[in-house]
Design a protein around this nucleic acid. Structure first.
Lengths: 263, 263
DNA sequence: TTAACTGTTTGCGAGGGGCGAACGCAACTG
DNA sequence: CAGTTGCGTTCGCCCCTCGCAAACAGTTAA
C-alpha cells in the first residue's frame, strides 16, 4: 500500500494493521512468498510475520500453498462487491462495451479515488491495441485523458492538493509537467468537455475522454477511447471521437439522473 | 505441493488484525457505515474503530466519503492481480466464453480455496438464465456440479476434512446431505469424469460440470454449463452437454501441459 | 437555547505485539 | 549417513500500544 499523505489528518494509527498491510503488498510484489523471505524483505521478526499470516489465513485473505503464502481469491470477492457498489456500474459497463464495439478501439471508464485514477471498465474492440491497464489499476490523473477529464471537474483546491500529494511525473516527451500547463489544459477541457492524451503517458498512444458528471454537478468519472497515433488523426481525432465520447458521457449522465430520481 | 490447509493449526494470532478484518467485513455487510454504527455493530469502542479506519484509509483499503467509510476500489486492483496469478486464467476464460457462446447457456469455471468453491469466470450465453453467482463468489462444494467435480479429484482425507469443517447443508429437496451419498456420487464422477447438479442448490436449475486436472494429476478446478430444467433434459443433459464440458476440460488440460512444459 | 446526534481526540491501564532464541523437520552435502 | 543449513513454527518475556472510557468538537433537530 502506498505511503502518501494520510487521508485522515491527525489521530492514532494501529501499527499491527499497518504491518499487515505491508505484508499483503509484499506478498503481491513478490508474487507469493515464505515467512523468511517476507521477514527479510520487510525487516520484521519471523515470528511477527508468521502470526500475521496465520491471522490473515484464518480470515481467508491469504492462502498457504505448502510453505508459501499467497494473497487469496477472497480479494476477487471483495473487488466485485466494491465494483457493484458504484451505482452507475452497469450503465458505464454497457456504454464502454458499446463504444468498443462501435469504434473497434479500446474503451475505458475511470473514477477517482485517493487522488488517483482507477480504471473500472475496459473493453477492447475488434481492432484494438493492447494496453497495460486493467480494472482496478491505478494511474496518476495528470497524464491520461481520463484523469484530466476528471481533474477538470474538481475544485482548484482539490486539484492543488492532488498535485501536491501525487506530483506531476514526466512519462513521455509530451507529458504535462508544470502546474500552469495543467491548469490551462483543465480550463480548455472544462470548456470543450473533452480531454485529449497525445502520447502523454505512452509513445504511440492517443486517447480521447469526456467527463461524466453526477446530476448534482459532482464528477462521477470519465469515459474514453484509446488507440494508436496512426488511426487517431485529423478529423477523427479532433471531431468524430470527441463527439462519440461526449455522447456516451451524456447517456450515462441521463441514466444516472433517472437512477437518483427513482430513490 | 497443493496441500493447503484452511487455517494454520496452532500458533499465535494478531488480535488487532482480527479486528480490522471484522471491520472490513462489517463495512461490506452494512454497505458502508459510520464510526458509531460500526462500533455498535461490532461491540468495539468508537476510538478503536476510528483508529483502525484511519490506518486502513492510509493504506487506501478504505475510503472516507463525508462521515461514512467504504471499502475501497483497491480491492478491485488486488482482485485482478489474484485472478491473473492463476496460471490457467486466460485459457479457462477463453473456454468459458466459447462454451457460453456455443450452448447459449451460462458457463462457469470454479476453483477450490479454503474448502469452498470460488467462481473465477462466468459468461452468460444469448439464451442464458440469470444466476446469482459472480466472480469471487463462494459456495459450498457439495451442492454444485462444479464443487462435486472438484471434490471427486481430492483425496478421501481432504474431502473428510472439508465436510467436517464446512458441513453438508441442505439447499433443496435434492441436495446430498449424507456422507455416504456424497462418497458414492464422487466415485461415480471420478469414473465418468462428469458431475451433475439436478436442482440440488436451486429449484429449476440443472448443471453439468467436468473436473480440470493439472498435468501432475492435481485438481485445478472445474468447468460447467448451467440452465433451466426445461432445457436440460434427455439426451442433451445425459450425453451432449457432458461431452461438451469434458471436451472443454480437456482443452484446458492440454494448454496447461504446454504451459508447464515451457517453464 | 438545549439536546442528541455525529466523528474525533486524549489519558491511561492491561494485555498483547513483536523480538530473539530455541525447536522440529526436510533437503542437501561432504 | 552424520552434519549442516535452510525452512516454518513455537516459546518466553519485556515494553509498547491497543483498546477502553470519557471528554471534546461540530452539526442537526426540536
Amino acid at each position: 500500500m502506498s505511503e502518501h499523505g494520510p487521508s485522515i489528518p491527525g489521530g492514532r494509527r494501529v501499527k499491527a494493521v499497518q504491518t499487515t498491510c505491508r505484508i499483503l503488498t509484499a506478498l503481491r510484489d513478490l508474487d507469493g512468498a515464505g515467512v523468511t523471505e517476507l521477514s527479510d524483505h520487510l525487516d520484521l521478526a519471523k515470528a511477527t510475520v508468521h502470526s500475521h499470516l496465520a491471522t490473515l489465513a484464518d480470515n481467508e485473505l491469504v492462502v498457504k500453498h505448502g510453505d508459501s503464502y499467497d494473497v487469496s481469491l477472497r480479494f476477487v470477492d471483495f473487488g466485485e462487491y466494491v465494483k457493484s457498489r458504484v451505482d452507475i456500474y452497469e450503465i458505464t459497463k454497457a456504454e464502454v462495451e458499446r463504444l468498443a464495439d462501435e469504434t473497434e478501439e479500446v474503451a475505458q471508464f475511470m473514477v477517482e479515488e485517493h487522488g488517483k485514477g482507477v480504471y473500472l471498465h475496459k473493453k477492447r474492440g475488434n481492432n484494438a491495441i493492447q494496453t497495460a491497464s486493467y480494472a482496478g489499476n491505478r494511474k496518476s490523473l495528470h497524464c491520461t485523458a481520463l484523469g484530466k477529464a476528471i481533474l477538470s471537474q474538481l475544485s482548484r483546491d482539490r486539484v492543488d492538493r492532488i498535485v501536491r500529494d501525487e506530483g506531476i511525473q514526466k512519462r513521455t516527451e509530451n507529458t504535462i509537467t508544470t502546474r500552469e500547463e495543467l491548469y490551462d489544459e483543465l480550463d480548455r477541457i472544462r470548456e470543450q468537455q473533452v480531454a485529449f492524451d497525445d502520447e502523454e503517458i505512452l509513445s504511440g498512444l492517443r486517447c480521447v475522454a469526456a467527463p461524466v458528471r453526477h446530476p448534482t454537478g459532482d464528477i462521477q468519472g470519465a469515459i474514453s477511447i484509446s488507440g494508436p497515433t496512426t488511426r487517431f488523426t485529423g478529423e477523427r481525432f479532433d471531431e468524430e471521437l470527441p463527439e462519440i465520447v461526449r455522447g456516451a458521457a451524456n447517456v450515462i449522465e441521463l441514466n444516472a439522473t433517472q437512477l437518483s430520481e427513482r430513490s
